[in-house]
Amino acid sequence: MLNLEKIIALIILIICIVYAYTSFVIMQANLLPFELNMTVLPNSLPKVISIFGIVISLFLILKKDEDIEKDEDQSKIELNNVLNFYYGKALSIIFLMILYTLCLRPVGFILSSILFLFFSSFILGERKFIKLIIICFIGTTIIWLLLEKVLGIYMRPFPYLIQTMVS
């Protein structure tokens, strides 16, 4: 049966094949006439690394399981722990991050950041709402002031509509 390591090696193999096809076929066809006389072409390095990538990923797929020695690193995931992991919480926070990214411009930096910090803390189990709101508000405002007023990095603070009304 395929283990996670081999499934990943298989996915990487597919990526390498697509990359190799792009380098050998598509990029080769798009080369300009003068580029053909160059010693190094735009697809030279991609060609070489795609071959290396295919060979190594094939090696990882075909390698016998017993050859793979697990690293005894602290970060190694114990099987017992894996079963008890909070997958729901992690996926909810990843979803929240995507939502935050999409809302950053239309909703504005301050409001979207406060909501992101509030809901991610809530998902992690924080229930002291007043304290949470104060911390999220102060944290976001300090970062916004630092970026906008000190460093001159513009972040639209409020939703577009409110900002137009105010201005």
Partner: peptide, 21 residues
């Protein structure tokens, strides 16, 4: 690369070079 992990480390470096292109 830990013990028996050289191929994985090489694979990761190749993915990194791919992203750099």
């Amino acid at each position: 690369a830990g013990k028996g992990q050289v191929a994985k480390a090489l694979m990761m470096a190749i993915l990194g070079i791919m992203l750099a292109t």
